[in-house]
């Protein structure tokens, strides 16, 4: 974990310093210049923060789901601690993704919120996390809480394909990769980045994923201590 921590500090620092300081020019000549993406201009720098955070949100949700599934199979309370810890972190990342996305939307598309399919999806993800924590706090018995919250997160996970495939057809989108976007017809956005910019993006991506791993490790260790403490005080 020491290596992970060092990696987090180095990668995120480098990604932020590069992301803020490298100049953006219309036609990059040297390696240390970023291309201007039409329509985004300097606002494109948010890509090094918003996209990795949003990505980590999804990773955290899937990790939580996976540990929930593991709990149902093994009935080992350790997995429930991991599942809920991952959900807590996912909620934090989800909140950050919503805030950075709303700010970006304000300056790029004109308003903080447009009910674009991805905005709707992240809002529903926030609601799922909210419902998950509400459910957890409403059940006293530890085993029942672990079991039912795992079932709920899997059930909520079943709706994800509808948000990816069905929703964009119902509502017009603004994000890259939406239906009607000239650059691509796939659900995954095409990257308009080259060279150092692409490297910066992936450094940030790896950095935020490692940040999640490190924080999850810390949170699980705290949860474990709390769990043993609650056993002793009973």
């Amino acid at each position: 974990m020491k290596i992970v921590r060092a990696g987090v500090i180095i990668l995120i620092t480098v990604a932020i310093v590069l992301g803020v300081s490298i100049p953006m020019v219309p036609k990059p000549q040297s390696f240390f210049e970023y291309p201007i993406i039409p329509g985004l201009e300097e606002k494109a720098r948010n890509i090094f923060f918003h996209v990795p955070v949003a990505w980590t949100t999804v990773v955290a949700f899937l990790v939580s789901l996976w540990y929930g599934y593991r709990y149902l199979r093994t009935r080992d309370i350790q997995y429930d601690l991991k599942s809920s810890a991952s959900a807590e972190l996912g909620f934090v990342f989800c909140f950050l993704a919503t805030i950075t996305g709303a700010l970006w939307a304000k300056f790029n598309w004109g308003s903080f919120w447009n009910w674009d399919p991805r905005e709707t999806s992240i809002f529903v993800l926030l609601l799922i996390y909210g419902a998950y924590f509400a459910l957890r706090s409403a059940i006293d018995v530890e085993e029942t809480r672990a079991r039912l919250s795992a079932v709920y997160s899997i059930l909520a996970g079943l709706t994800v394909p509808f948000f990816i495939f069905a929703l964009p057809r119902l509502v017009g989108g603004l994000h890259p990769g939406s239906a009607g976007d000239a650059s691509g017809q796939t659900p995954v956005a095409q990257l308009h980045m080259r060279g150092l910019m692409l490297l910066n993006f992936f450094l940030s991506m790896i950095g935020f994923n490692l940040l999640f791993v490190w924080l999850l490790n810390l949170r699980v260790r705290i949860a474990r201590l709390e769990y043993h403490h609650s056993l002793q005080s009973m």
Partner: peptide, 28 residues
């Protein structure tokens, strides 16, 4: 969700909270 809620303490208000995110694709 009704089966889940039957085991919880606050049933009435929690049910729509749990159901809404799951029902959003259907509702839209």
């Amino acid at each position: 969700l009704a089966a889940i809620i039957a085991k919880a303490n606050v049933r009435g208000s929690l049910y729509p909270v749990l159901a809404f995110p799951v029902l959003v694709p259907l509702l839209m």
